[in-house]
Structures are given as structure tokens and as C-alpha cells.
Design a protein around this nucleic acid. Structure first.
Lengths: 240, 240
DNA sequence: AAGTGGTCTAGACCACGGC
DNA sequence: CCGTGGTCTAGACCACTTC
């Protein structure tokens, strides 16, 4: 029997698309039943195995839940836990206007610890960018990020002032970030930090050291962040 | 063609078992090739789709990686990030001897915030257990945990002094924990906390509020923890 | 060119759920 | 009971990788 697919899209993906469209448009809500395997097979003129594949894969993606003897139902909305987000994204999620002020932009060669975390030989020139992060014009955090000066030659102070580092990496350099390893502890504000963040000296701050990895698994950026814990806290979901 | 399976185990699971056994025993190492779909089908006397199902499901579980045109290979060992661990487990991973001292054990009815987080009506009696957590006999953390007094009637002070809360919940009450939502920020030690943790007053501490959920999705335990950030820090992996 | 995984067919029987 | 998802067959063609 001939395939019948006009373009290059597999039949099972087309079936998924018809379901996903209804979910996105709100016509299908969590708990609603989806057509059964047999119905989908008949509607789309495919075999049972193909309709089944479409539903099974959607279940793997967390879009639907299948119950033997009962049917296939839209899954509860999936919440993104432990999602790696840039500062702008983060504040956008809280409906706050994010802005940044570049405080410093230097080339450093003597940050042994940072170079090691980025898997670079000691002495490799690194761009060091200090930024004050503001939400609704109130200071939120102080972030210092490091990345190879050679790998990102045109990343200047003005470029960084414009937009988010995440966006610049992804659009200007074609580097997609995949994940970040983070180390979190608490520390006390020193005089300069206290002044910049407008908190009393010795005020407790959340300190986060991040190594951002690209989709190719390469350590790309190191970020040291100090966060006002009255304005920012970390939400994590951990699994057993 | 008849099915041929003697017992209730599906053929595809048997095929998976033969592969998993070799992985566990070390005969198959990461990067090693697994038999192709066609080989597996011939060996086990099943159809191609069944052999394929066995491999596809193993790929979903992260055991193997499949590359079109190349073959199926054992995946690199998966590392458990963001793994929910009790204090004892945590320190065991760092080769430190964990111990605990129960500081208080009360029944409280007036913790509106906690009751809400556990999805209980305000006024429900809660056991409140304060524990000092030690690693190698040095104070690490101060943890106060809350759980329904009615749901865990026999959980006494002495029971808790014996072992880990995780173990007690799982073995004595048959409650498997599935995940925890955590909220992390920084705070300064008050006089009592400073004394117990043996740090100066106003010393920065990592504060973590955890809601532990059972496999049935029920909020079961609430934990408020204060951690000496010189001895303990949080390691997280976040994904894009 | 040979082998691999990716998609697909047109059926089948089974186990389970809800009515 | 009937409809659901779960497993399975014995093939087929395609797209891709490796040699």
C-alpha cells in the first residue's frame, strides 16, 4: 500500500499536529479526551500502529496521558521547573521591566579559577563583564560574567548594554545554551556590593556561581551572581 | 503466528532485559554497539516492530542512543542531577558521618503558612520537629519539619532520633517521596540559631523551604532549613 | 553497496475500565 | 458488555551512514 504522504512530514506527526493545535488554541483542555487510536486511524487513513505511535510519542512528551481501557486524555499543563533563564526572561515571567547597567568591561588573564571552570588553559584572555541588574528600576543583582575573549571577539560593551547575553550568544554566535551547573550559597555584602545593591553592609545575599554549557557540551560562560534575597529567590524542583 | 510468550512478560521487555543485563554486568560499556533491530528480531524470533519497540523504549529511558544509518549504542552513564536526598544520604555522598539531635518535638495548630503549604485546613494539628544536623560532629544545619500529626500518629521523638525521616516515611508508612519544591534564599543568623550552629550572630545562612510530595502527588512534609553556607552549598543543574 | 534506523500497513489477540 | 490501550506479526519502502 502506498504511503500517501505528499510532503516530507510523517503521518504520525501530522496527527500529532492536529491534536497540538487544538491544545494550543484552548479547544482541548486538561482532562479532555482525545480520539481513540482506532478513530484517529480511520480519520487520517492510517494503520492502527501509526495512530498509536502518534499518541505514544505525545505521551512521552507529556502532552497526553493514556489509560488502558479508558482512553487518551490531555495531560495537566506542564510547568517548567529548573528552567535555565536569563535575567530578562526571568523578570518577564514576573511581569517586571528588566534593565541592566554595564559597570565594567575588562580583559583579564589571571582568573585561574574561572579559566579552569571553562576548561581553558590558565592565561587565556577572558572578557570580564560586571553588570548591575535592575527590575522595575530597583537593584536586584550584581552579575559578573566571563567568557573567552578569542571566541567572542566582537562582543563589546555596547553590544552587551543592548540586550541579553543569552540572546546575543544565540543569535549573533549561533550558540544554543543547553544547561547550566550552579553552585548556590549565602554570603554577606561587602561595602561596594552593599552600595551598588542599596542594602546595608553585611546584608545576607544569595551567591550563585554558574557554568553555562552549550548544546555541544562546551563550557561557554561563567557567571558569578550576588542576589538581593529579599527580591529574588530560587525555585527548584528535585526528584527522588 | 502464535505469540509464543510463556509467562506474562512481553517479548520486548525480555529483549530489553538481555541488554540491560549486559550493561549492568559491565559486558556492554558506553559507546558499545548493541545488536541491530533485524538481528534482535532474528535472535528472539520476533517481528521487526517488536525488536524496534524494545530499542526505542530503551532510548527513551536513556539507556541507549540510536543513530540512523549507524546503529544503536550504549549511552553514556546518566548522572542524577537535582536529586532529592535526605540529610543522611547527602552526607554519605561526601563520606561524612551524619548525625542528628532532636531539639524539640511539639504539636502545633497555629502555623497557618505551613498548613497551607501542606494543603491542610488551618488548625489541623501538626508535629513540629526541630533537629540540629551534624556532619562529622560539626553543626551543619538547623531543620524544622512539619507533618500531619493525624497522618503519622506513631512518629515519636525516639523514632526520629533513630534514623532518617525519609527512611521512616518509606518503610514505616509506605510513603514513597517523589519530588520536592524548594524555595531558596539567604538570611542572617539570629542569636539562638547562631549559638546552635556555632557561627557569629548575623552570619549569612542559606535558607531553604521544602515541600516534599509523595508519589501520589500529596504534599506530605514541610521543611524549613537553615544551612551554614561555609559547610553546605546547593548544586543544581538547570536546563534550557 | 550494504547495513542501519525511521516510517508504515492491515490486520490480530489480550487485558483492563466503565457502564 | 463494548471500547480502550498494550502487544505483536510479516512484511515493505525510505533516508541515512559507513565503507
Amino acid at each position: 500500500m502506498r504511503n500517501g504522504r505528499q510532503n516530507g512530514t510523517p503521518a504520525y506527526k501530522k496527527i500529532q499536529a492536529t491534536i497540538l493545535k487544538r491544545v494550543d488554541s484552548g479547544r482541548l483542555k486538561p482532562g479532555d479526551a482525545v480520539e481513540s487510536e482506532r478513530e484517529l486511524a480511520k480519520i487520517h487513513g492510517v494503520s492502527l500502529m501509526t495512530a498509536r505511535h502518534a499518541l505514544s510519542a505525545l505521551e512521552q512528551d507529556g502532552v497526553v496521558q493514556r489509560r488502558r481501557g479508558a482512553g487518551t486524555f490531555i495531560a495537566p499543563p506542564k510547568i517548567h521547573f529548573n528552567k535555565l533563564m536569563g535575567f530578562n526572561e526571568l523578570l518577564a515571567g514576573r511581569n517586571l521591566a528588566a534593565s541592566s547597567k554595564v559597570l565594567s568591561f575588562n580583559v583579564v588573564t589571571n582568573e585561574r579559577e574561572v579559566a579552569a571552570r571553562l576548561a581553558l588553559v590558565h592565561g587565556t584572555p577572558l572578557n570580564e563583564v560586571g553588570r548591575l541588574r535592575l527590575g522595575a528600576d530597583e537593584p536586584f543583582a550584581l552579575e559578573t560574567c566571563y567568557f573567552s575573549a578569542e571566541q567572542f571577539p566582537d562582543l563589546t560593551r555596547t553590544t552587551l548594554a543592548r540586550g541579553s547575553l543569552f540572546a546575543i550568544l544565540e543569535h549573533d554566535y549561533g550558540i544554543q545554551l543547553a544547561y547550566a551547573d550552579e553552585e548556590v550559597d549565602a554570603t554577606a555584602a561587602d561595602a561596594e556590593t552593599a552600595h551598588l545593591l542599596q542594602v546595608p553592609r553585611s546584608h545576607p545575599l544569595l551567591r550563585m556561581r554558574q557554568v553555562l554549557y552549550s548544546t555541544k557540551g562546551k563550557a561557554t560562560v561563567y557567571v558569578l551572581g550576588l542576589y538581593r534575597s529579599d527580591r529574588y529567590n530560587l525555585l527548584i524542583r528535585r526528584f527522588r
